[in-house]
């Protein structure tokens, strides 16, 4: 599965000469195991189309060397949908916009069933998500109960995404056996005020750092295609790399009706692929997951190219408010690409 293209081959393929940044990346990331600098990430994001295949090849080689062939499969479920008091301009679950998404709660049997169905696909991660600023007592109690019930009937790692946490809540989730906690930076610090005004970047970072300090794995993602510049995309990748999360879900904006970003155009598939390569070259060892929006931005072909360009994790099935590809489409593709599903390791 390793498909290394030498610089000479690249030159022959493109006819325009390889960019020096690809040689630098090969040396720094592939050979020495270091992530690219912010300036170098930007150069990857600005590569001409003709050099995109070579960048993806290199990112794939980096993924194989530092993460292996396996792909981590996860299912996600919304325990509380909609009605969020925050104003993230991309989000259909904010209660502050004229979004058609209504507030709904899922009960414990529904959560357990979703966990069982997810595990049946071979997935090892099950993430319970709530549209909240941070969890209240009711939600924390429901999560505790759900974790106990799920652990009784199914072998799967449980992750949570419940917004900003207090130190006490971090400690409780760790104690209850939450394996990984998701809290996204979403975008670069310099662009954040354009898309969120009800909380700030440092509040997000505080939760991320507390999660790591408590010994949970940190899942900290990005949402690109919101109108940020390439320089800001590079800034985001560098900020994520500095945080050193275990996992980075890479989401592509799916403009939602009623939100302030409803009219944003869908980012091009090539730019999405450039971002995949750039994020992998920024973070050689992270679990880099295809998040939401890939169906719209990349389609079926792009899913394959992403998995051969640095991605080593997928969300199987549906997202929180939108639908994913059929699970079989992704699982069949992994078989075809000879990429085994990562096996369950109860690490905590």
């Amino acid at each position: 599965m390793t498909r290394t293209v030498s610089t000479d081959q690249t030159t022959a393929l493109t006819g325009i000469g390889a960019a020096p940044i690809l040689d630098q990346a090969r040396d720094r990331v592939l050979h020495r195991g270091l992530g690219l600098t912010q300036e170098q990430i930007l150069q990857i994001l600005e590569l001409p189309d003709a050099l995109l295949p070579a960048a993806l090849e290199l990112a794939h080689d980096v993924r194989l060397k530092y993460c292996g062939e396996s792909v981590e499969v996860e299912g996600i479920i919304s325990v509380k949908t909609g009605g969020c008091p925050e104003d993230c301009h991309f989000c259909s679950q904010s209660g502050l916009f004229e979004s058609p998404v209504r507030a709904v709660w899922l009960d414990i049997p529904g959560l357990v069933q979703a966990a069982q169905e997810t595990a049946a696909t071979g997935a090892t991660e099950f993430c319970i998500v709530a549209a909240v600023r941070g969890p209240d007592l009711k939600l924390m109690n429901q999560i505790k109960f759900a974790i106990e019930r799920i652990n009784r009937v199914v072998e799967i790692n449980i992750a949570c995404s419940l917004g900003m946490l207090t130190q006490r809540q971090v400690d409780q989730l760790a104690e209850w056996g939450v394996h990984r906690y998701n809290h996204n930076l979403e975008t670069a610090r310099s662009f954040f005020p354009e898309v969120v005004t009800t909380h700030d970047y440092d509040e997000r970072l505080d939760t991320c750092r507390m999660v790591k300090d408590a010994g949970m794995e940190l899942c900290c993602g990005a949402l690109i295609g919101m109108g940020e510049s390439n320089a800001q995309r590079a800034e985001l990748a560098a900020q994520l790399a500095a945080l050193d999360p275990h996992e980075v879900p890479l989401n592509f904006l799916n403009p939602r009706p009623g939100t302030p970003l409803a009219g944003q155009s869908i980012m091009s598939g090539r730019d999405a692929l450039r971002a995949i390569a750039a994020f992998r070259l920024a973070m050689p060892r992270t679990v880099l997951r295809f998040g939401g929006g890939r169906e719209l931005t990349l389609g079926d072909l792009g899913t394959r190219e992403g998995l051969l360009g640095g991605i080593n994790a997928v969300i199987v099935g549906n997202y929180l408010t939108t639908l994913g590809r059929p699970a079989t489409a992704d699982l069949d593709l992994l078989v075809e690409l000879n990429m085994p599903i990562r096996e369950l390791q109860k690490s905590l």
Binding site: R102, V104, Q113, G317
Partner: peptide
């Protein structure tokens, strides 16, 4: 690519729950 949000008969906004493999 996503479940319906409005009732096709009366246009009320519906309560929608998306699960990993259905809605």
């Amino acid at each position: 690519m996503e479940p319906p949000r409005y009732c096709s008969q009366c246009r009320r906004r519906m309560k929608v729950q998306v699960d990993p493999f259905g809605w």
